[in-house]
């Protein structure tokens, strides 16, 4: 692609372009015979942050995991800019950072792991890791083992690891739910920071409406199963957003609207 810049390690740097990035068409998925998704279509725009929110058991994580290839689909097609998943570089941040990191290697080697898997040479790996460390303004010792770090630090390492290969899409599965409020604010801020710097497409599953709205350009609200799209709300409050943004009228209104739909769906 001609419009892609590359960095020191030769990895393409993402550019923000306002067009569809991920297309989901005719998705079908059933569990134990009962359909969860049936003839489900979804467009995810490029270079935007999409939050997925919905009632318990509607399959928010399942939807994201099918897009990310962690769960197989029964039927349907999912394409990234027309490419298949195999041709696409993705990053994934798990809710359970403790179980997602490799405790036998140091935090810094965890971050370098996907780069090594890509077959990059030592100097390139080091260049990219150094860049990430600078970007994230890391104040703790990455030469420690993951279990020696706090929860927030571990999740930071997870995010750095996911971003290391400069993914085209970053998936985050409830990235805050194992963190306390202080760390949630910190990580949320970091994610917005990274987004503003790289413009990477992000898909976030959240069970907390505040987190879902705060980061999002678009909020995907799902119904109870069989799951359909209840609403796909845009939210274009200017960035960078900060804790004060949460009291702005557009934030309050969007959150209230989302809550209304959510409650309607829960009752349904």
């Amino acid at each position: 692609m001609s419009d892609m810049l590359t960095d020191a390690a030769g990895l393409p740097v993402m550019l923000t372009r306002d067009r569809t990035h991920i297309t989901v068409r005719g998705l079908y998925k059933s569990f134990a015979g009962s359909p969860l998704y049936e003839n489900f279509d979804l467009d995810i725009p490029e270079g935007r942050i999409i939050s997925i929110f919905g009632p318990n058991g509607c399959g928010k994580s399942t939807l994201m995991n099918m897009i990310a290839g962690l769960i197989p689909v029964d039927q349907g097609e999912i394409l990234f800019d027309g490419k298949t998943l195999k041709q696409t570089r993705i990053g994934y941040v798990f809710q359970q950072y403790r179980e997602a990191l490799f405790p036998w290697i140091r935090a810094i080697d965890n971050i370098a792991y996907p780069l090594k898997r890509m077959g990059l040479g030592k100097p390139q790996v080091k260049a990219r890791v150094d860049e990430l460390v600078a970007e994230f303004d890391i104040r703790f010792d990455l030469n420690r083992y993951p279990y020696e770090l706090s929860g927030g630090q571990q999740q930071t390492v997870c995010i750095m690891r996911a971003l290391a290969p400069r993914p085209e899409v970053l998936f985050l599965d409830e990235p805050f739910s194992a963190l306390d409020y202080e760390m949630t604010l910190f990580i949320r801020d970091k994610l917005q920071d990274i987004y503003l710097k790289t413009g990477v497409t992000m898909v976030i599953v959240s069970h907390n409406l505040e987190d879902a709205v705060f980061l999002a350009d678009k909020i995907l609200l799902l119904t109870r199963r069989p799951t359909r799209i209840a609403d796909y709300m845009p939210f274009d409050l200017a960035r960078p957003r900060n804790p004060a943004s949460m009291s702005e009228s557009s934030f309050v209104a969007t959150k209230a609207h989302a809550l209304e739909i959510f409650q309607r769906e829960v009752r349904a």
Partner: peptide
């Protein structure tokens, strides 16, 4: 841990 296996797979 299944998560760790998935994490490795997603990293290629």
């Amino acid at each position: 841990r299944k998560t760790r296996i998935l994490a490795a797979r997603v990293m290629g």
